[in-house]
Design a protein around this nucleic acid. Structure first.
Lengths: 233, 233
DNA sequence: GTCTATACCGTGATAGAC
DNA sequence: GTCTATCACGGTATAGAC
């Protein structure tokens, strides 16, 4: 239940869960994505995990807390990888001042999400869809738990994006980073959103296809002129 | 409970609800947004509406169906206004072929959403937030109910956007329209998403501010080069 | 410390009287 | 159309076994 395990990356800093707690986490993770949060009962989770109902209230203190644990378990490695890639990028262009490319910065958080999305064996794809739910729903407890790591990640990317977009104010940089994150995660989540658009000629299932279509959109959006410039057509 | 009331716009084509049904709808609408869908109990709704608990299961057949009714009541006028504005735009440039501006097309659906968002007296702001929830959650029943009107709206906007972006394939046009809609609604929903980003220096409450920041982002994203073009920095 | 059995109360839904 | 009574199921808390 450690809150912040991003600062030190000396090996695997994942909190140790007991055998039964891990079984609960695994079962819950799959069911939350498959059925949704509210449609998944604790009785179904514990039944599938082969543990007692009360165990979930012992190891985690509530259903919401269980959801947070499921989420946090995947969030930490992802965030660590995002920071690692950003470090590598900045080290690569250490000499220059504003030589950071917008696409490169965006790819630093897209690549880890893409990797997760393409590796469903370890429950990676689950996390991306859970993240999109967190973005739209109100999980105040989860936000507090993640605020430290998340805040660090965002401030790092804000700085990098600010360097890549020298003409923008700080406020606008934050806005565009926010929009960029939102678009990416909702696209990866792919909760049949496209199905809403009548017959979906688009298959949002292929992660590579998502990157191909979404990244240019996001990068161009970030590069847009500051405020009310009409931009020649 | 009429499904499609978009084709004919001869006055108010809103389905007639009884007195008690309307009171239920009004109460549910406010509570769903304030507390969320699952946190709002039918007992609370009926209590606030001053009707009996069983009434909600008589007029609507379930809680989910009630949610759909709440949503559909706001969706129809909004969609009608979006089509009206698109009609006006296309009539304005009737002479030329590809003279449609991307910004103008985007504003055709942004303006109605903005109007709703700025008019909370009639429960308009509610709809925008509900829409964002529908986008990320799986309301298959609701999708089927709306597929006709929604499909018509999307095909019209796809055509218009395709005219404004002659260099793009049909598939890419659909993708960008999809992304544009997603960004807009999630920004309007503003479910404290920005709060996730550590201390939010950005106040997402002012709808005009949202439009000011989001529209340039979306328009630039739609105008991005087709596939793998790096685009000069 | 871990795990289990069980009881509690609120929820959505339904049947049937009026 | 409306209301009362009742049902099965949900999350939660607790007492107690190992």
């Amino acid at each position: 239940m450690k809150a912040s395990f991003l600062s030190d990356d000396d090996g695997e800093r994942v909190p140790k869960y007991s055998e039964t707690a891990t079984r609960i986490l695994d079962a819950a993770e799959g069911l939350f994505v498959e059925l949704g949060l509210e449609a998944t009962s604790l009785r179904l989770i514990t039944q599938q995990a082969g543990v007692n109902l009360a165990a979930v209230n012992y190891h985690f203190r509530s259903k919401d807390a269980l959801f947070e644990a499921v989420f946090a378990r995947r969030f930490a490695p992802w965030a660590r990888e995002c920071l690692r890639q950003l470090d590598a990028l900045e080290a690569q262009v250490a000499g220059g001042e504003a030589s950071l490319d917008v696409t490169s910065v965006v790819m630093c958080y897209v690549r880890p999400a893409l990797a997760l999305s393409k590796d469903p064996l370890r429950g990676g794809a689950v996390f991306v869809r859970l993240f999109s739910r967190v973005l739209v729903e109100n999980h105040r407890q989860l936000r507090e738990t993640l605020s430290r790591d998340w805040g660090h990640l965002v401030s790092r990317y804000t700085a990098a994006l600010g360097r890549a977009l020298p003409g923008l104010s700080d406020e606008e940089v934050v806005w565009r980073l926010h929009l960029g994150f939102s678009v990416m995660f909702h696209a990866f989540a792919g909760n049949d959103i496209l199905k809403l658009f009548g017959r979906s000629a688009v298959s949002a299932r292929d992660p590579d296809l998502i990157v191909k279509h979404v990244v240019p959109f996001v990068v161009a959006g970030m590069r847009a002129a500051p405020s009310g410039s009409p931009a020649a057509d």
